[in-house]
Design a protein around this nucleic acid. Structure first.
Length: 707
RNA sequence: GCGCCCAUAGCUCAGUGGCAGAGCGUUUCAUUGACAUUGAAAAGGUUGAAGGUUCGAUCCCUUCUGGGCGCACCA
């Protein structure tokens, strides 16, 4: 700090301070100078290698770093584990987009070359987001970074798969699942989004009945009709077959008669449409379940690319084209009774927004019943504690109703399943094993090949709190103390980490789950890149500094409410940083190079006593707020104390009428304030600390909070 | 359909069963002294509506209105 400078310059100080911390080695808990014997570990919610830091990450990084720095100063064996996620479907899509620009496709490249391309991408962009976290001041231990495709991590994924299979929790089945025709893979229930869409509900004549459907093109896949067993209108048909007049798939204009059984099933809602469902087990998940209950055959009429098949002259048409053509022919044949406008929730792929096409497919499923029960049990026994607790209800509801998890994906980028196929046998001849079997147990002679399928990304991220950790770190840091994340991945990720932890480590992976708010635009809209409504935290750092950016975000992070982000708070943060800088300059200039550190309370004036008391109250309030994840409140308390009690009142008093103890009080409170402020604004406080004449520790980051 | 959250100053938000607060913005004044990225002060509120509990409600309860979100259904 040179005498001429009147304003704090974050740019210079921030990179210098981060370098100082890295040199100190104190991000690594092995090097910490003081330990109280208690661990404090946090696992970074895995950012994707496709990502850039956004406001959600910035909020997460800020509050996590506050807790990490706070505990480190209190002497905990503190570690923050960073890492990145290979993000199977997301990364594959990104690289596919790149290939498209080069006018090629992954299929032209072939699997091996394509995967090499994704690795190239990973090398180029994989660490960018980690660097951006550092810019925010994240004090994670980079030496403990993991990537979900690291060899050790991959081994854990394969082990988990084999384990589940041995436990009879994992099975292979031919089922109707959510299929994305663009990504060309099956996806899980949790990866499906819904969007309202105007459609038409067609009332079609089905023999003696009228059936309401929004998907007439699937009619060739019908294998039954279903009515509610309690429905007086149709009860008598249950167990019979009815004759249906329908289009001929061979010859246009020809009408044929087919026979369909009528089943009684509760899934039929008497109040919807006509109360009769056309059951298409191959192209509707609810219908598939009806089919299972009544052992109905499956008739697939739409293929993996979303085109008609097994439908004669309609084969090869896109679903939308087929629908149009079929409806117009049905109209002509007098088989459409009426058409109604109808708003429906269209299922779309959460990754690419393409309409989901339910399709029958051979996939691997993880049985959820036992795992969900264990997770629920941990919640009820208080082993996991969700903060705020109103998020526990939907979490519970999901666990109570969840279906088996489809964990296989038809992607190229990911953990290939440890499944080996007989090359001479039928489709069902396979072996689940980590290593390739020496001999095929089915035919005894073939060389088995590994399945093309890979794991759902979330299957591997579910293992994040332990996969690829050293045995020593596992003993030392598992379970971690808190998981800090956003609400949108509670089921997708948090629940799955919990049951994975219970299954593989016999304990929940974290005690608290703190769900922070979502950062919205100032007028309450979702921040979105495509809508241009996002604010880039790195731009804020560039403009105001990382401390000011952290301040601005945390200032608004009151409780767990969503944040309507107002840049004005970052401006306030910059001003506050400057205030800290200047107040420190004044105090250091006044107390000289050998400040008194003992305060003689017998000589203290009321002003001295008042400010010391306020400092004490402030510290207790900060601790109280941090204990319950009230980050914004803690910062407000600190701000009020430092700016008003310390600067406006006490320093002004000292200028007018200093007491005999004034210098000692000024210095003690500066040291104390820097400690309290450090978790929130680490750079400026560290920079000032480095200028203190008699610092107790060379680095504020590891100074004793209690002293 | 089931459930959750929110509504307080112009804006973004705290807060408390007993005189309603902050940041930013606005207005006035001050200032060679750590800081104009400052200080002192002012204006600005029927705490979304109605009802209830209470000596007393912004706070607790009910209903409504408006906004946001999650889950399910969606033939």
């Amino acid at each position: 700090m040179s005498e001429e400078k009147k304003a704090y310059d974050p740019k210079e100080a921030e990179s210098a301070m981060y370098a100082l911390w890295e040199q100190s080695g104190f991000f690594n808990p092995d090097n910490l100078p003081r330990k109280n014997g208690k661990p404090f570990a946090v696992f970074l919610p895995l950012p994707n290698i496709t990502g850039n830091l956004h406001m959600g990450h910035a909020l997460n990084a800020a509050v996590t770093d506050i807790l990490i720095r706070y505990h480190r100063m209190r002497g905990f064996d503190t570690v923050w584990f960073p890492g990145t996620d290979h993000a199977g479907i997301a990364a594959q899509n990104v690289v596919e987009k790149e290939l498209k620009k080069e006018d090629t496709t992954r299929h032209k490249l072939g699997r091996e070359a394509f995967i090499a391309r994704v690795w190239e991408w990973k090398k180029k962009y994989g660490d960018i987001i980690m660097g951006q976290f550092k810019t925010m001041g994240a004090s994670f231990d980079i030496s403990r970074t993991r990537f979900t495709l690291d060899p050790g991590y991959a081994a854990a994924v394969a082990d988990a798969f084999v384990h589940y299979h041995k436990q009879d929790l994992l099975y292979r089945a031919y089922r109707t699942i959510n299929w994305c025709t663009r990504c060309a893979t099956g996806i899980s229930d949790l990866e499906v989004d819904y969007k309202e869409e105007e459609g038409v509900l067609y009332y079609l004549k089905y023999g003696p009945f009228t059936v309401a459907t929004s998907r007439p093109e699937t009619k060739f896949g019908d294998t039954a009709l279903a009515v509610n067993p309690a429905d007086e209108r149709y009860k008598k048909y249950i167990g019979t077959e009815v004759e249906i007049t329908t289009l001929d798939t061979a010859e246009e204009g020809k009408i044929v008669i087919v026979r369909l059984p009528v089943v009684g099933d509760e899934a039929a809602d008497m109040a919807f449409g006509t109360g009769i469902i056309k059951v298409t087990p191959a192209h509707d998940i609810a219908d598939f379940e009806i089919g299972e209950r009544h052992t109905l055959p499956m008739m697939q009429v739409i293929d993996a690319r979303g085109k008609m098949m097994n439908a004669g002259r309609f084969d090869g048409l896109k679903v939308s084209e087929a629908r149009e053509k079929i409806v117009s022919e049905l109209r002509a044949a007098g088989l459409v009774e009426r058409e109604e406008k109808y708003t429906r929730n269209l299922a779309i792929c959460s990754r690419c927004s393409t309409a989901i096409e339910p399709l029958p497919s051979r996939q691997w499923f993880l049985k959820m019943e036992r795992l969900a029960k264990a997770t629920l049990n941990a919640l009820e026994k208080g082993e996991t504690n969700i903060v705020p607790d109103n998020f526990a209800a939907p979490y519970k509801a999901w666990l109570e109703n969840t279906r088996d998890w489809c964990v296989s994906r038809q992607l190229w980028w990911g953990h290939r399943l440890p499944v080996w196929l007989c090359t001479k046998g039928k489709e069902d001849d396979y072996v689940v094993a980590k290593e390739k079997p020496a001999a095929c147990p089915h035919c005894g002679e073939c060389v088995m090949t590994q399945t093309e399928d890979v794991c759902d990304t979330w299957f591997s991220s579910a293992l994040w709190p332990f996969a690829g950790l050293s045995d020593n770190d596992l003993k030392r840091f598992y379970p971690s103390q808190v998981l800090i994340t956003a609400r949108d991945i509670i089921n997708l990720w948090v629940g799955r980490m919990v049951f994975s932890g219970l299954e593989f480590k016999g304990a929940v992976p974290f005690k608290d789950v703190f769900i922070h708010g979502t950062v919205l635009t100032k007028d309450g809209k979702r921040m979105s890149k495509s809508l241009g409504t996002g604010i880039d935290p790195l731009t804020l750092v560039e403009k105001y500094g990382a401390d000011a950016t952290r301040f601005g975000i945390v200032w608004q992070a009151m409780g767990t409410q969503d944040i309507r982000f107002d840049e004005a708070a970052v401006v306030a943060g910059r001003k506050f940083a400057n205030k800290i800088f200047n107040a420190s300059r004044f105090v250091i200039g006044r107390v000289g190079t050998a400040p008194r550190t003992e305060i003689d309370m017998t000589k203290a004036t009321p002003a001295d006593v008042l400010v010391l008391g306020r400092a004490d109250v402030t510290k207790k309030a900060v601790e109280k707020h941090l204990a319950v994840y009230e980050f914004g409140q803690a910062l407000h308390v600190l701000y009020d104390f430092f700016w008003h009690d310390y600067c406006d009142v006490y320093i002004e008093e000292v200028k007018k009428a200093p007491s005999s103890e004034a210098d000692a009080v000024l210095y003690a409170l500066l040291v104390g304030s820097l400690k309290l402020l450090h978790p929130f604004m680490p750079f400026i406080t560290e920079a000032v600390w480095q200028e203190l004449p008699h610092a107790e520790q060379s680095v504020l980051m590891v100074a004793d909070w209690e002293k």
